[in-house]
Amino acid sequence: MIIDAHHHLWDPAARPYPWMDDSVAPIRRRFDVDDLRAATQDTDVTRTIVVQAVHDPGETAWLLAQPAPVTGVVGWVDLTAPDVADRLSALAHPRLVGIRHQAQDEPDPSWLARPDVVRGVRALADAGLVFDLLVRAREHHAALALVDAVPDGSFVLDHAGKPTIDTGDPGWVGRMRDLAARPNVVCKVSGLLTEAGADWQHRPVARYVRAAVETFGPDRSMFGSDWPVSTLAADHGTVLSTTEQALADLSDAERDAVFHDTAERVYLAGASSQT
């Protein structure tokens, strides 16, 4: 059994997605659970975590209504709102497991370290919710400041910090080590084929997968497909098999951690499923 700890569902006809420009035209359409089931039907994926893709509470409400295999939702709330705790209470749902903000798209690279954002993430921690870090190198220091400011929070680094695999990223290992030194951060091994670009088959994707797991350890690493964004590079089955092949030397227990146990512990300990 595999938990896909990072994928998306969306309907651009229902709400705008500002990042969906012509560069992602093939995925600028509705993706729903039927599409997800079709994409995973030949895999061992039995449960999934769906992740927000726009700063819109309406999308979060829609995601929370999705049926199996969706088991957990990483949604969105305005972390800077003075009444963020009340907004989280209103959003509370057995399957709401975390919150994410697309900090990589903020004009201010230090957005995550702003006092109002730190206060909002503290409210997440108080509510028992995880915060997903969507950051590149530009936001790295702000992410470290946030994690250090909320030591009782639980953080998940999306897409292994989004290394620039296509052009090479000599600073990536150091950034990963910085975050791995914080025990309240785990790493999502996801999105790496997309980061490698159209020529991902000729890029060292496997090396980045292995390095991410080696840096954080299997007990602090989890698999995510990043589907359907990942379809810009490969189908769901190829993303999964590429990750499995890169980690073929893991023991059975270590493999179980990456592909199931870490996501279960971090995201789903208190979540309930819905069919």
Rank of each mutant, 00 (worst) to 15 (best):
I2V: 14
D4Q: 07
H7V: 08
L9S: 09
P12G: 10
P12K: 11
A13Q: 11
R15V: 10
P18I: 02
W19M: 15
D21T: 03
S23D: 09
A25P: 07
R29F: 00
R30C: 03
D32C: 05
D32R: 06
D34T: 12
L36A: 01
D42M: 02
D42H: 14
T43S: 10
T43G: 12
V45H: 08
V45C: 13
T46Y: 15
T46S: 14
T46I: 15
T48C: 15
V50C: 14
V51S: 10
V54K: 13
V54Y: 10
V54G: 11
H55F: 15
P57H: 06
E59Y: 02
A61I: 08
L64E: 03
Q66S: 05
P67A: 15
A68T: 03
P69T: 13
P69N: 08
T71N: 11
G72H: 09
V74P: 13
D83F: 13
A85N: 10
R95T: 00
R95M: 00
V97E: 03
R100C: 05
R100N: 00
R100Q: 04
H101D: 02
W111E: 05
L112A: 01
R114S: 00
V118R: 01
G120Y: 00
L129I: 03
L129Y: 02
V135C: 13
R136W: 10
A143T: 07
D148G: 04
V150I: 02
D152N: 14
G153D: 02
G153F: 01
L157G: 02
D158W: 13
D158A: 13
D158S: 05
G161K: 08
T164Q: 14
I165Q: 02
G171P: 07
W172M: 07
V173K: 14
R175F: 04
V189E: 08
L192D: 08
E195Y: 07
E195L: 04
W200T: 05
H202L: 15
R203L: 10
R203V: 08
R207T: 03
Y208S: 04
R210L: 12
A212I: 10
S221T: 01
P228F: 08
V229N: 12
S230W: 09
L232T: 12
A234P: 12
D235T: 09
H236W: 13
G237W: 06
L240K: 05
L240F: 02
T242W: 13
A248S: 12
A257C: 08
A257D: 06
A257H: 00
V258E: 04
V258D: 05
F259C: 01
F259G: 01
H260E: 06
H260V: 01
T262Q: 06
A263L: 03
E264P: 11
Y267I: 00
G270H: 05
Q274S: 09
T275E: 12
